[in-house]
């Protein structure tokens, strides 16, 4: 092959459910071996996109290619993709080993060989010794690993993960995030990861697509999504950035556009504003200590605007509600965005 086709390509893909446009003209390309996240609130179309790739659903219009092959009319069982379901969807009547071996079994792989491969896959997800248990006898985290092994044993070229960590508690989630990422690097399989958790998307992905109302609002590496949000929606959804109206940004000497401003970019001033910073007086409404950082909620004087401010915990020890402060806003931290979407 002279030209490497993308693992997944969407061309103007739309999926309507009656009057609802669940997916509305989505174009995207996912590279082979890429960890690609689809991030968005519930109902934003990300899961529908995943189901379109898996073949559980067909686009109303547009085209989907998987490694350069048009997927229209190709049933799920003939696609080189496998899915890890949100509810795991383990077969309750089979033990763990047979669950994992299922994909090989239906392809006619002999019992000895498929059990050996299933055992390998279970070892890969660190569940080697649980093969003879039934899914009900496993914890949520273990079921998650079985679902992962069951998909991976088929050596898919694209692995689809539908909010796979959603049902796990925080500690387990963080462990699985690290493991998933390590696994993905090791296997070199393209992962398409659907989540509504921005932290998860940012920490694991090579690229993130932010979905809203059936459309992709922005695609890019995590840093870009976080630091240079294209719209107000992205700024607010991906990590609680402050959004300054155009008038306020202009008043500070910044661009004449709505701007995002990260809470940690704002400083507290004790003297006059240094070069490149604009001063803004405000009153503290709430102060919270978070260990590594101190988070303040401040009301800007003379404007109906509240800002979140994050400062190192060592600073501002005695600050509390009602106190007046002066904020130092670096003009370089004002990132101009498009309209409200």
């Amino acid at each position: 092959m002279t030209f490497a086709a993308p693992a997944v390509r969407f061309r103007a893909v739309t999926r309507h459910f009656g009057p609802v446009k669940a997916v509305d003209g989505v174009d995207l390309e996912i590279a082979p071996g890429e960890f690609f996240s689809m991030l968005g609130p519930s109902g934003s179309g990300k899961t529908t996109c995943l189901r379109l790739i898996a073949g559980f659903d067909q686009p109303s219009s547009g085209e989907i290619e998987i490694f350069g092959v048009a997927s229209a009319g190709v049933p799920p069982y003939a696609r080189a993709v496998n899915t890890v379901f949100q509810d795991y969807a383990l077969f309750p009547h089979m033990n763990v080993l047979d669950n994992v071996a299922y994909g090989l079994m239906v392809r006619g792989v002999g019992k000895r060989e498929r059990h050996a491969k299933a055992a390998e896959a279970l070892a890969l997800v660190k569940l080697g010794q649980h093969g003879d248990r039934k899914p009900v006898q496993l914890s949520g985290g273990q079921r998650q690993r079985v679902a992962l092994a069951r998909a991976l044993v088929n050596q898919p070229r694209v692995l689809l993960l539908d909010e796979p960590l959603g049902a796990l508690d925080l500690k387990l989630r963080e462990e699985m995030q690290v493991e998933l990422k390590a696994l993905q690097r090791k296997l070199g399989t393209a992962f398409v990861f659907v989540t509504h958790d921005q932290g998860e998307a940012l920490s694991m992905s090579d690229r993130v697509a932010v979905f809203n109302e059936g459309k992709i609002v922005q695609v890019g590496p995590p840093e870009e999504i976080y630091e240079r949000p294209r719209t107000e929606f992205v700024a607010r959804f991906v990590g609680g950035s402050n959004v300054l109206p155009a008038a306020v940004a202009r008043g500070l000497g910044g661009p004449d556009a709505p701007c995002s401003l990260r809470p940690e970019a704002i400083a507290l001033l004790t003297g006059p504003a240094p070069e490149g910073q604009a001063a803004l007086s405000a009153v503290i409404e709430d102060a919270q200590y978070h260990g590594a950082a101190r988070r303040l909620l401040v009301a800007v004087a003379g404007a109906a605007l509240r800002l979140a401010v994050s400062i190192p915990a060592g600073e501002g020890g005695g600050l509390g509600p009602g106190q007046a402060v002066t904020l130092g806003i670096p003009l370089s931290a004002l990132w101009p965005m498009e309209g409200a979407r």
Binding site: Y77, A89, L90, G103, V106, R150
Partner: peptide, 10 residues
């Protein structure tokens, strides 16, 4: 999703 999982697995 059991049915979908089965189809997904081939």
């Amino acid at each position: 999703s059991l049915v979908e999982a089965s189809m997904d697995l081939g």
